[in-house]
């Protein structure tokens, strides 16, 4: 068992004592070293002092807006941030992701889900050089050769479709907002045209998904964006 110092540090930011207690309980698996903060300013201080490997951030903080906390951290650190928010506030999630958060979880969430997200995030952040070939289930993207195969059979993609697939694959497991994708692939001028993205996703799914109504690879995150499922 690695010593306490070697364990990945998690900073939990929430003002609800019951949530904090719950998170402490479920994360106390021996995998992580836990730190906590009850408000935005304490979170900013802790982020600098503790240098966490992952931050679990509740958006509804008493002293400052969660999105602002993200922006302030992003000014100097690329530490992965997972946002916790309630279902009714899609806008906040999108704002948080656009501000630089890496993932989000909707309350109430399951423990398994939380642990999986933390692990994926940690893995992604420790991964130094990107893999030249990404495999998800039966889908294989060979980046150096710009070749996409499904169950070994090559799929013909348009350049845009390929770019989109590659972008999602690089960030497999991570949610990308509509804006982030539009900006990356079509450029900032297309931010107001999300339907371009929807059409491309629809076409892409037809080529790689077995059942477009139950996609395995490109998952729609309602009101937020898309995510490539990781493994």
């Amino acid at each position: 068992m690695p010593s306490e110092e070697k364990l990945p540090r998690i900073l939990v930011v929430d003002d609800e004592p019951s949530i904090l207690r719950f998170l402490r309980t479920v994360l106390n698996t021996g995998e992580f070293s836990l730190h906590q903060a009850e408000n935005g300013h304490a979170a900013l201080a802790a982020a600098a002092a503790v240098r966490p490997d992952v931050i679990l951030l509740d958006l509804g903080l008493p002293d400052m807006d969660g999105v602002e906390v993200i922006q302030r951290i992003r000014e100097w650190s690329q530490v992965p941030i997972i946002v916790l928010s309630v279902r009714e506030r899609e806008d906040d999630k999108v704002k948080a992701l656009d501000a630089g958060a890496d993932d989000y979880l909707t309350k109430p969430f399951g423990v398994a889900e939380l642990l999986a997200r933390i692990r994926v995030t940690l893995r992604r952040s420790t991964q130094q050089t990107p893999e030249p070939v990404v495999r998800v289930d039966e889908l294989e993207i060979d980046m150096p050769r710009r070749r996409v195969t499904i169950r070994g059979e090559e799929v013909q993609l348009t350049p845009t479709e390929y770019d989109l697939l590659r972008l999602l694959a690089i960030h497999a497991g991570k949610v990308l907002t509509h804006n982030q994708i539009l900006k990356q692939i079509w450029g900032p001028g297309h931010l107001e045209q999300p339907h371009v993205l929807r059409v491309t996703v629809s076409n892409l799914r037809r080529k790689i998904e077995q059942d477009v109504s139950r996609p395995r690879y490109i998952v729609t995150e309602l009101g937020v964006g898309y995510r490539m499922s990781s493994a």
Binding site: R198, V201, S202, R205, S213, T220, L222
Partner: peptide, 12 residues
């Protein structure tokens, strides 16, 4: 309102 794919809708 945005243009939406019914397949996507059912999938979600």
């Amino acid at each position: 309102k945005e243009y939406c794919d019914i397949h996507d809708l059912a999938g979600c």
